[in-house]
């Protein structure tokens, strides 16, 4: 199911996220890979699940394999694909392959630099940038590859892109967001935001863009994670009051507290967006509680 079906009906679109493992999926049919185990917590709670593509430039199982595995098990994957590891031939081919294997939604990103990951001597490809990738994906849907050759059977999928409301100067980030929309982006997920003022500034400047946007939130698990993100994760800023609040309870109560904090934040801002994208970083089990605190019911959801 393309998420456009939901956005077109003005449904508030809720998505989660899982990361493939560093390793393979064994042939044992009874084996449940971690990404699947995480996804099971999201059953009937979200509309679709992002599958990250070698996130933070750390080499893992491919997002295609994990996306297909989710699809085979009744979940709706959002296949993430970055420009970091593939040239234009591979990117187009992967998009055709993903659609052919049942993927209906794709999120097209630049990708974190190789320097941030576990293979820092790798050649960063970046043959295309994310705007170009979005345009090329849109061209594929029109039955043409990027050099104009005809395709036998055009793919038909929903094109997602990302934007970072935390970026300063915001106007520069929004120039790129507009270019993505002009290139063919059909929905956006934002980078994780924690500050009310950042949201308000972003919404004020983008409300006329006429493209659905999901607010992105990363589940804050503990004070150390907040400090780590501030120090090492580019483009995300966690205010001290968030760090203090998650640190105000014992470790055993952190999941409950986190669900309350994330849910409260989403509830406060949900009316400004067309959906929410929750990045639980392994804590998918608290996503149902987050949604309850946020007073969001996806009305059936997936599976």
């Amino acid at each position: 199911m393309k998420l456009s079906e939901l956005f077109d009906k003005s449904e508030f679109v809720v998505t989660g996220e899982v990361g493939p493992v560093k390793g393979a999926i064994p042939r044992d049919k009874d084996y449940v890979p971690p990404c699947m185990a995480e996804a099971l917590h999201l059953e009937k709670k979200v509309h679709a699940i992002n599958v990250t593509d070698n996130q933070s430039a750390v080499m893992k199982l491919g997002s295609m394999a994990a996306s297909v595995k989710l699809k085979q098990n009744g979940f709706e994957p959002i296949y993430q694909i970055t420009c970091r590891d593939r040239n234009r031939i591979a990117l187009q081919s992967e998009i055709l392959t993903a659609f052919s294997l049942g993927v209906d939604n794709m999120l097209l990103l630049t990708g974190d630099h190789t320097n941030l990951g576990d293979h820092i001597e790798a050649k960063p490809v970046f043959d295309l940038d994310s705007v170009q990738l979005v345009k090329i994906a849109a061209d594929l849907q029109k039955g043409k590859d990027m050099v104009g050759n005809d395709l036998l059977n055009a793919p038909d999928f929903f094109i997602g892109a990302v934007v970072n409301p935390n970026f300063q100067p915001l106007d520069l980030q929004l120039i790129k967001m507009k270019k993505k929309i002009e290139a063919g982006a059909q929905f956006f997920q934002t980078q994780a935001v924690y500050e009310d003022s950042v949201i308000d500034q972003f919404v004020a400047k983008t409300e006329l863009f006429d493209c659905p946007v999901q607010l992105g939130v990363v589940v804050l698990k503990n004070p150390a994670m907040g400090k780590y993100m501030n120090n090492y994760i580019s483009g995300i800023s966690v205010p001290q009051k968030w760090i203090n609040e998650i640190g105000s309870v014992d470790k055993a109560d952190r999941k409950k507290k986190s669900a309350e904090m994330m849910g409260r934040f989403i509830r406060k801002h949900k009316d400004k967006f067309q959906g929410v994208h929750i990045m639980p970083l392994g804590w998918t089990d608290i996503v149902p509680d987050i949604l309850e605190y946020a007073e969001i019911n996806v009305n059936g959801g997936i599976k």
């Binding site: 630049t110 974190d112 941030l116 960063p124 940038d129 970072n164 100067p169 520069l172 980030q173 483009g235």
Partner: peptide, 29 residues
């Protein structure tokens, strides 16, 4: 730009600095 992007910045810069190196200016900024 560390990623040689032609259509604008990625989302990784902070305080005008590139995500790969806090001493390096974001080329797009």
């Amino acid at each position: 730009c560390a990623k040689s992007l032609l259509n604008g910045p990625c989302g990784g810069a902070e305080n005008g600095k590139c995500e790969v190196d806090a001493d390096r200016n974001c080329g797009w900024i």
